[in-house]
């Protein structure tokens, strides 16, 4: 999905990708939902030796993945996850894509059915800059990491870190680990309270289990 809100470290892997890779056990079976051009899957294959698969909605993205030797099928997270059998993967990953799905709750539920664990990274709409933007301008924020106007963005289901934590409760998902990343890619202190993450995390990465 072309819904990424990304922080690139020049010449290196994306910080959220590195944070995800840390959560993945070596040699595990992984499904990357919304694999884009295959950056994350490639990183996982190279650094974690995973047996990786992907779903990607755009033909261009799929072709790029196939050319990189990745096993990626063209499909839609909203409709195609139901086709996968239970427990098919050790991890199902959704990187910066949840906000672009039509039914985020269903997607998270499906992820936890297909995989023993799910890893979800979400942009945080509760970040202080966004709050200030709305407070002072009274308009939907257009920032460097969220560059599209409200009428053009594929991101139709924004949430804050606390909203996502609530969703996890709703679907009975256990949060095993979570990491919040600042805009510059640095991490917030592990023991910081949710409200602090919600204010200062530009994005968060969650490791979920049933």
């Amino acid at each position: 999905m072309n819904a990424h809100t990304q922080t690139f470290l020049p010449g290196h892997a994306r910080v959220d990708h590195l944070a995800i890779a840390e959560l993945v056990t070596r040699g595990s079976r992984v499904l990357d939902v919304g694999s884009g051009d295959g950056q994350l899957l490639k990183l996982l294959e190279e650094t974690r030796r995973v047996d990786g698969r992907g779903i990607e909605i755009s033909q261009k993205g799929v072709n790029e993945c196939v050319a990189r030797g990745l096993s990626v099928v063209q499909g839609d997270a909203d409709t195609d996850l139901v086709d996968y059998p239970d427990d098919a993967f050790d991890y199902v990953i959704l990187s910066q894509t949840l906000q672009a799905t039509h039914r985020p709750r269903l997607v998270v539920e499906q992820m936890l059915r297909i995989g023993r664990k799910a890893i979800v990274s979400v942009p945080n709409f509760g970040h202080w800059r966004i709050r200030l933007y709305m407070l002072f301008r009274g308009r939907m924020p257009v920032t460097r990491s969220l560059p599209e106007s409200w009428y053009e963005t594929p991101n139709i289901h924004f949430c804050t870190i606390r909203d996502f934590v609530e969703l996890c409760k709703e679907v009975d998902a256990r949060i095993e680990k979570a990491t919040a990343l600042r805009a510059d890619g640095t991490r917030l202190h592990f023991n910081a309270p949710w409200w602090l993450w919600n204010l200062f995390g530009q994005q968060a990465v969650f490791l979920l289990s049933r």
Partner: peptide, 30 residues
């Protein structure tokens, strides 16, 4: 997928019908 096999899948945009696999389709070639 259910068999756990390694699979890639692409649906190629073309208005030339079934015969497209025999024709000049750059996306297929790539």
């Amino acid at each position: 997928n259910a068999a756990g096999a390694s699979v890639s899948f692409v649906e190629i945009e073309s208005d030339r019908g079934h015969d497209a696999f025999l024709l000049d389709e750059p996306e297929l070639f790539s």
